[in-house]
Amino acid sequence: MTVPTTMATDPLFDRLRLDELRRRPGVKWQRVAGDVLPAWVADMDFAVPQVVAEAISDTVHNGDLGYPNWPDGNPLRAGFADRMRERHGWQIAASDVREHTDLIQGLQLLLHLSTKPGDAVAVQTPNYPPFLATIDTMRRKRVNSPWLRTSEGWVPDIAGLADAVASHDCRVLVLVNPHNPTGRVLSREELAEIAAIAHRHDLLVISDEIHAELVFAPHEHVPFASLSKDTAARTVTLSSAGKAFNIAGLRCSVVHYGPRRLLALRDAQPPDLYGVVSPLSVAGTLAAWRHGAEWQNRLMRVLDRNRRRVAEAVREWAGDAAEPMPEATYLYWFRAQHLGLSGNDPVGETLRRAKVLLDGGPGFGPDAEQYLRLNFATSASLLEDILARLGTMARHSRGT
């Protein structure tokens, strides 16, 4: 597929070979047949930053795979505190940070420590399917507060969230910001309104901020816990370098505890009950945070280019009903009807008719049945192939 001349390419990210991608052992490419293009799970197709690869290689070559000696605690703790201060001006203590293998484990631990089966947990939908599944399988009462699709784009229904929290006596709010799957970045004013709800109803807020470093200008990420002392004292922040540097397979995340009682309860658990992160994952994560700026800056220019290209394609399919560009992430959330789909399985229909695997549908919560999520973190040429297949399906559906 020819790349439009208006799309500036970057050799670091655009020289991807399809045959090499298909040989990758990860789930993104191995879950599809040889004629299918995957644009579903939130993994980027790009190679990991060289500084990350070198940090891991150096650790191995130095023979440093024994039990680590970290008398002052895992160095991820200070690394994350430094990262938050440098990027957001958020001053936190390294002693309030802990590490886990991934955000889902962190959420599960927090719900285990702070709630019991039957307790109500509020979540804004659509939302990340593993979070919704976690709440359900842990037998907590999931209280859905839908976002609103307006002429201006996706907006959080703050009044609806307040009503849902009050009417169901919620104990916890799971906040996802930047939002997955819509890509919205909540403004400081919107966050302040949510913080007021949390204060009024004494909620524990579990804030997933893993996409915080994938925000497009002029939007800015505001850590929820940075709003005020009261908000900080009731907020646990989940984060990782996994999404922003394409290293999810390192299985490494961090959790900042605002509530002192909850941190003490966590530390009172048996040592290593919830697993530990490996020295390799620590080395890779710290290298990304400390030395990955050039790679990340180039990445954001490529992702910005790609999201604009997807927006152009969606306008071609949808006309006046086109969907807004995401303000963050490399995920595009749009209505399946733009591709001529109206059934209950838009993912399956897209796979069958276009040979493209997207994500979407009811796993993202109520009212998501007719939505699809497209991962555009790939090369310009592969993105053109994906959009061409989807465009052909859309035109055939319209009879043009």
Score class of each variant (00 low, 15 high):
Val97Glu: 00
Val123Asp: 00
Ala380Tyr: 05
Trp289His: 02
Thr101Ala: 12
Ile194Asp: 01
Pro270Lys: 14
Val121Gly: 00
Gly275Ser: 10
Asp58Thr: 11
Pro68Leu: 13
Ala120Glu: 07
Asp10Phe: 08
Asp157Gln: 02
Tyr67Lys: 14
Ala233Phe: 06
Ser342Asp: 07
Arg266Glu: 12
Leu341Ala: 08
Met7Leu: 15
Glu312Pro: 04
Leu262Arg: 06
Thr329Asn: 03
Asp82Arg: 15
Ala8Val: 15
Asn69Ala: 14
Asn177Asp: 10
Pro38Thr: 05
Val36Ile: 08
Arg398Gly: 13
Ser253Asn: 07
Glu99Ala: 14
Arg266Asp: 06
Arg15Ala: 14
Arg261Val: 10
Val165Asn: 02
Ala313Glu: 03
Leu37Gln: 00
Leu238Val: 04
Thr237Trp: 09
Trp70Asp: 09
Val276Phe: 07
His168Glu: 14
Met138Asp: 09
Thr235Pro: 00
Tyr257Ala: 04
Arg234Val: 10
Arg85Glu: 10
Asp169Arg: 15
Val347Gly: 00
Pro259Ser: 11
Glu189Cys: 09
Glu20His: 07
Arg315Gly: 03
Gln105Phe: 12
Gln50Thr: 12
Asn180Pro: 01
Arg298Asn: 09
Thr134Pro: 00
Pro75Ile: 03
Gly292Val: 04
His100Phe: 15
Leu203Tyr: 13
Ser145Trp: 03
Gly26Glu: 10
Arg353Val: 02
Gly284Asp: 05
Thr392Gly: 10
Asp119Trp: 15
Asn62Phe: 13
Arg298Ile: 08
Arg266Thr: 12
Leu161Phe: 11
Pro362Ser: 13
Ser95Trp: 06
Gly363Arg: 02
Gly365Phe: 04
Pro223Glu: 08
Val123Tyr: 07
Arg139Trp: 15
Asp169Cys: 15
Gly242Trp: 00
Trp90Ile: 11
Thr9Val: 15
Val48Gln: 07
Gly183Ala: 09
Val123Phe: 11
Val97Trp: 01
Asn74Thr: 11
Met7Trp: 13
Glu327Asp: 03
Ala217Cys: 06
Leu390Asn: 02
Thr182Ile: 10
Met44Gly: 08
Ala81Trp: 01
Gly34Gln: 03
Phe80Gln: 03
Lys229Thr: 14
Ser239Arg: 04
Pro75Asn: 03
Asp19Pro: 10
Leu387Met: 10
Lys116Asp: 08
Asp367Cys: 15
Trp70Phe: 12
Leu299Phe: 06
Phe131Thr: 09
Phe224Ile: 13
Leu250Ser: 04
Ile194Met: 09
Gly89Phe: 02
Leu37Pro: 00
Pro324His: 06
Val27Pro: 08
Pro324Met: 09
Arg290Phe: 06
Ala336Asn: 01
His88Cys: 13
Leu204Trp: 13
Gly363Lys: 02
Arg31Met: 15
Met300Asp: 01
Pro346Ile: 06
Gln50Gly: 12
Arg251Glu: 12
Val155Trp: 09
Asp58Arg: 12
Gln108Lys: 05
Tyr257Glu: 01
Ala328Thr: 05
Gln269Pro: 05
Pro146Thr: 04
Arg98Cys: 06
Leu374Pro: 00
Asp267Phe: 09
Gly365Pro: 00
Ile104Met: 11
Ile210Ala: 07
Pro129Arg: 02
Pro270Ala: 14
